[in-house]
């Protein structure tokens, strides 16, 4: 099942939006990171991670997002987190993710 799931992506201009969903919180969430890397490699300068369908982010999710941040900074791309709920924003601030990304 996991191998069949396709990460939803929308692109417009220089921006690629990747939808995180609850998928982010499992090992299989590495797919999201790979998808982001693919978009960065394809030349998109801004990677938006959308959390509209993501209720909570656990430690695996944080680690995967750190991987996205690392990949983007290595390629000179920006990362934007959008549709993030209050609790998750607090968590990102506490762990320092917000030092590296813009939150919409």
């Amino acid at each position: 099942m996991d191998t069949e799931y396709k990460i939803p992506v929308q692109t417009s201009g220089e921006t690629a939006t990747v939808y995180a969903s609850d998928y982010l919180n499992k090992l299989s969430g590495e797919k999201i990171e790979r998808e982001c890397r693919r978009q960065i490699d394809a030349g998109y300068k801004t990677i938006v991670v959308n959390f509209g369908e993501t209720e909570i982010v656990n430690s695996i999710g944080v680690s995967i997002l750190l991987g996205v941040i690392d990949a983007a900074s290595g390629a000179g791309a920006k990362v934007v987190f959008s549709d993030v709920n209050e609790d998750t924003i607090e968590l990102f601030e506490m762990l320092g993710l917000t030092n590296h990304v813009r939150v919409n």
Partner: peptide
Amino acid sequence: QELIRTSLHLLLGALGIMR
């Protein structure tokens, strides 16, 4: 292999460690 990969994610993600 999965156990070790998951463990590393959990550790890095728990404290917000970059690598």
